[in-house]
Simulated assay, not measured.
Amino acid sequence: MSKNQGNLSNRQMKDLRDAFDLFDRDKSGTISLSELEQVLIALNFKPTDSLVRKVMKEMDIDGNGSVEFDEFVKVMKNVYERKFTDDEMRRVFKCFDIDGSGYVTADELHEILKRLNRDISKNQIREVINEVDMDHDGKISYEEFVHIIQQT
């Protein structure tokens, strides 16, 4: 276990690796400023140059202009350790709820992943939704989303 890992579980480390790999679009082993900007855009944020630079500065601990996996873990470890406010959770949920219906559908999840250059089949997306979908209506409600986030 690396010292950056702290008390993160193996599942959390795998989740962080998966997230890092999603950001690292060119598979260079680092997240560049432009990759960070592209991910924010794909998640329906409309980042200004100054916002992207600010986020990069917070993540780029050694100041070399890119984020390595260890830096990513150090920053993201705080996500696992803190509780999010309802307002924060709703803002994140809205990034995925593209049509504002109050639900995240398979099509919306597919669209977000496509924007992130992840070619995942609709079947795989349905499997993910089935794992999260407690009331079995085929979509993810805000309450189901919160439940999953709080379990991580």
Rank of each mutant, 00 (worst) to 15 (best):
L113D: 07
C95D: 00
E143I: 10
E58F: 01
R91G: 03
E37S: 09
K57Y: 09
K57Q: 14
R82Y: 00
E127D: 15
Q5D: 13
N7M: 06
T105R: 01
S101F: 04
A19R: 04
A106T: 10
D135Y: 05
Q12P: 07
Y80D: 10
D119G: 05
R115C: 10
V73F: 07
Q150R: 14
S32Y: 01
Q12S: 08
I98N: 03
E58R: 07
K139N: 14
M76Y: 05
N78C: 06
R126V: 06
G63R: 09
K122P: 03
F23N: 08
D24M: 01
G102C: 05
V55S: 06
K77A: 15
K14S: 11
L43D: 04
T48H: 02
S32F: 02
F72T: 10
G6L: 05
R126N: 15
M134D: 15
R91Y: 01
V128A: 13
K83R: 11
M13A: 04
K114I: 00
D119S: 13
N130I: 03
Q5A: 15
D70E: 15
F145R: 09
V79C: 03
E81W: 00
H110E: 10
S66Q: 15
I98Y: 02
E131Y: 01
T30M: 07
D49Y: 00
L36D: 06
N117A: 07
K74P: 00
R90N: 02
S66N: 14
D87M: 01
K57H: 13
S50F: 03
I41W: 00
C95L: 05
L22P: 01
M56G: 07
F45C: 05
Y142A: 11
K27T: 12
L113V: 04
V67N: 09
R90M: 08
E37Q: 12
K77E: 10
S2T: 08
P47T: 02
G100E: 08
G102T: 05
L51F: 08
D70I: 03
V92S: 09
I98T: 09
N44Q: 10
G65P: 14
G65F: 13
H147V: 08
L116E: 06
